[in-house]
């Protein structure tokens, strides 16, 4: 399963993009005793019967892989949330997008490390197609926010590896500030 919270954020962002969304909102927030990962999209959404099964690892809509019947992404999110005393829930309607809100116990011994959020965010900026992705990151009152369109305007494009590397560096500089590490470069991997 996923080794860090940044992987769970990647998972939710990738799901949102696959839903055909033109707008995606992703927030990773650490405050008080909680860590929250929230992802909202305006993609295809799903009906109640499907929504009721998405946290079941033996369920997949089989759209991508007709002969495979596992869908582990959301079950991983829920399992991790519950293991830390939190929970994950889904709000959706057909044609009206999805919201997944996962809450984790911040002090819980089973909370995975945060991981490399700048790499996760940069990766989510790099999918193909026209979509707006808004990232919000908050840690104990320190925060940053960026939209895909802003990074693309600054970099000219978000397809070449050099542009993506710079997007990652930009995000890392803000992540360091949010974490109160003002004086050195370095990975956010823990």
């Amino acid at each position: 399963m996923h080794a860090c919270l940044a992987d769970l954020a990647s998972e939710l962002g990738q799901n949102a993009w696959e839903s055909g969304a033109s707008r995606i909102f992703l927030r990773v927030r650490e405050a008080g005793e909680r860590v929250e990962i929230e992802c909202r999209d305006n993609g295809c959404g799903m009906d109640a019967a499907t929504a009721g099964r998405v946290f079941d690892p033996r369920f997949s809509d089989a759209r991508k892989h007709p002969d495979r019947r596992f869908g582990l992404g959301l079950p991983f999110v829920k399992q991790t949330a519950e293991a830390t005393g939190g929970d994950a829930r889904l709000e959706t309607r057909p044609g009206n997008g999805c919201a997944v809100i996962a809450v984790f116990g911040r002090r819980h011994v089973d909370l995975p490390p945060l991981g490399d959020l700048p790499a996760a965010f940069a990766g989510l900026m790099a999918f193909e197609g026209e979509y707006e992705l808004t990232i919000e990151r908050e840690r104990d009152g320190r925060s940053y926010r960026v939209r895909r369109s802003e990074l693309r305007a600054a970099l000219g494009e978000l397809r070449s590896a050099p542009a993506l590397s710079m997007a990652k560096d930009w995000l890392a500089s803000h992540e360091e500030a949010a974490q109160g590490k003002g004086n050195h470069h370095g990975s956010n991997d823990t």
């Binding site: 990647s10 869908g71 582990l72 990652k168």
Partner: peptide
């Protein structure tokens, strides 16, 4: 970047490659 890729460390590979 499917679930399997993410779980196996695709983000680290992405980061190192770019």
């Amino acid at each position: 970047m499917g679930t399997c890729g993410i779980a196996a460390g695709a983000k680290a590979a992405f980061s190192a490659i770019v």
